[in-house]
Design a protein around this nucleic acid. Structure first.
Length: 557
RNA sequence: GUCCCGGUAGCUCAGCUGGAUAGAGCAACAGACUUCUAAUCUGUAGGUCGCAGGUUCGAAUCCUGCUCGGGACGCCA
């Protein structure tokens, strides 16, 4: 438990006790004491609305209740400087500063671990994300999902969850046949033959590159082989090459997985049949029109039942996916989270039904939908299409915009809000991008610390935190103290954008402090020593936050 | 037609468990570099939180209806 939490807990208990002592409510009636951090500093360090909540129970005016509570609070015990009753009945607490004084030592001691907590209690969470079909390369929209999923995992890890990252490789469906046909067509085209691309073919440049690579390796030897043999080779080649591309692009984007799960492996050990059997046992399967159906409507959310075995005997996309989710759940995770593109949201209800049909609770399963990214270039919306291969690739984004800026930008937006991506703006790398603002704060501190050494200050000296009483110093201290809770909240709400908001605010306080106060001052040794310690703590916290976002923390800019 | 997501400042977006006067960046305007980095800071201006009801001490936040934008509604993946 961190300093801030301890203070909060103590205060909550004190308030609850005061309510009981004042006879305003019985133990059973007592609502949970809610403490908030007021936006306005004149409202104190903490505020509670307990008096308003008790109005109905105690049948008294909120302000009167507040008054009764305040009388019973032991200010000394809870390190309270001052209590005020305000507005309709808020109780504002102004804390003694001593609770802030422990923050710097805590940060310095914990170093790169500062911010980590055990909020998740080691709960086992698995996040499956990206999982792009291996039929080409990664595009803009996938980049958003990749950034979101990765930072979500980082946040889970830091908040004390036991997290595992997984990529589901769709290497068994008809899209792989299409890939083979596409590579084959490009191969033949490259060798001068007049062939058309298949109707559902993949038109991206990567496919052409694959064809060229095959020619480089094997020349025209596949011309002589049977169509079947050639196609088989093209398929496997395309699959391997795509996966290699995807894995490399993701790695360069700072995204790595613990597991790459192959759809084919489900076929190899009868897992699909097992899953279907499981559904049959629960009587969720029936035959109709020559096909086999899953009764997904039995769970209230899906609007129609779903075919799992087609008339021709083959599976639909859903069938191996049910087996896959069974596999995941059988692995014993407390929670499995899927990060999907918005075009798959209609799929959620049937999957949730499947999970229940398999005998698992629906709340073990969660889907985070990543809304669309609209690309703008030259002031115009660019239509994205995988088919025509015209979308901006992750590779281009990394080359032209940079990894840091791309990741920061995507993570700072809520996943369920659509997002406009202005290519020209991103390319310009101007100060319009907040990532530079945050990185600059980090670099600034590094320069200061460097200067401190050069000027002969002892940067590791004992310091007295009590003298950090300037307003901007106190603001920084409070913000530093919030970091562990911010991470825990981001994990619990699956909202990594809390992190970018936080680090931006921290950077802003740092810049403001920097402009208002001088850190290195030979005429004020004690203050300088304390401020150096403060700067070190801020630097560590910014670096830790950026690290979780997957963005570098430069020492110079 | 049904379902999902969104509508907050000129633009792009935050907004926690329902709290006090709704925030930030960019753009605009006015200032601050002989100083630890001006990729910064300070200030000004900018709002019917899509609309209408409801719940309550209190709603951008919860509920209902409507509206606009996007997406999904396959024995495709």
């Amino acid at each position: 438990m961190n300093v801030l939490e301890q203070t909060e807990q103590q205060l909550k208990q004190e308030i609850a006790q005061a309510v009981l002592t004042a006879g305003l409510a019985s133990k059973e009636e007592l609502p949970e004491v809610i403490l908030e951090k007021p936006k306005d500093k004149s409202h104190g360090d903490f505020a509670t609305n307990i008096a308003m909540q008790l109005a109905r129970i105690a049948k008294k005016a909120p302000r009167q209740i507040a008054d009764d509570i305040v009388k019973e609070i032991n200010q000394e015990e809870a390190s309270i400087e001052k209590i005020e009753i305000a507005g309709p009945g808020f109780i504002n607490f102004f804390m003694k500063n001593d609770f802030l004084q422990q923050i710097i030592p805590t940060v310095l001691e914990q170093g790169e671990n500062y911010g980590r907590s055990n909020a998740g209690n080691g709960e086992r969470v698995q996040v499956e994300f990206v999982s792009v079909n291996p039929t080409g390369d990664l595009h803009l929209g996938h980049a958003r999902g990749a950034a979101y999923g990765d930072v979500l995992c980082n946040v889970f890890d830091a908040a004390g969850y036991n997290v595992e990252r997984e990529y589901y490789i769709n290497d068994a469906g008809s899209q792989i046949d299409n890939l083979g046909l596409s590579v084959e067509a490009r191969y033949l085209q490259e060798l001068g033959q007049d062939v058309e691309m298949p109707e559902d073919g993949y038109h991206g440049q990567v496919i052409i590159d694959m064809a060229k690579a095959i020619i480089e390796e094997d020349g025209d030897k596949w011309l002589e082989k049977s169509h079947q043999e050639r196609l088989e080779y093209m398929k496997e080649y395309g699959l391997k090459a795509s996966l290699k591309n995807i894995e490399r692009d993701l790695k360069d984007f700072q995204v790595e997985f613990d597991n790459w799960f192959s759809e084919r492996s489900l076929y190899e050990d009868n897992q699909i049949q097992d899953a279907i059997k499981k559904l049959e046992e629960g009587d969720y399967v029936y035959e109709k029109d020559g096909a086999t159906w899953f009764k997904s409507t039995a769970f209230g959310e899906d609007d129609k039942d779903r075919v799992i075995i087609k008339q021709d005997g083959s599976y639909t996309y859903l069938t191996p996916d049910i087996a896959y989710h069974k596999n995941k759940l059988d692995r014993g995770f407390d929670k499995i989270i899927n990060v999907w593109g918005s075009d798959h949201h209609g799929y959620v209800a049937r999957m949730k039904a499947a999970i229940q049909a398999l005998g698992y609770s629906a709340d073990k399963f969660d889907v985070k939908i990543i809304q669309m990214v609209n690309l703008f270039e030259g002031g115009e919306k660019v239509r994205m299409s995988k088919r025509t291969g015209k979308a901006v690739s992750l590779r281009e984004l990394m080359d032209e915009v940079g990894i840091d800026a791309t990741r920061y930008f995507f993570v700072s937006r809520s996943n369920d809000s659509q997002l406009d991506f202005d290519m020209d703006l991103a390319r310009s790398q101007s100060n319009e991008n907040p990532v530079y603002y945050v990185q600059y704060a980090h670099a600034r501190i590094c320069t200061m610390l460097e200067q401190a050494k050069n000027k002969g200050f002892d940067v590791d000296a004992e310091f007295n935190p009590e003298i950090l009483t300037a307003e901007k110093e106190q603001d920084l201290l409070k913000k530093l103290g919030e970091f562990p809770q911010t991470i825990a909240d981001a994990a619990e709400k699956h909202a990594p954008q809390r992190l970018t908001n936080y680090v931006f605010e921290l950077a802003s306080l740092l810049h403001s402090f920097y402009n208002a106060e001088k850190v290195l001052d030979a005429d004020a040794q004690e203050r300088t020593t304390a401020r150096i310690a403060l700067m070190k703590a801020v630097r560590i916290t910014i670096a830790n936050a950026l690290n979780l976002i997957g963005v570098t923390a430069p020492e110079k800019m």
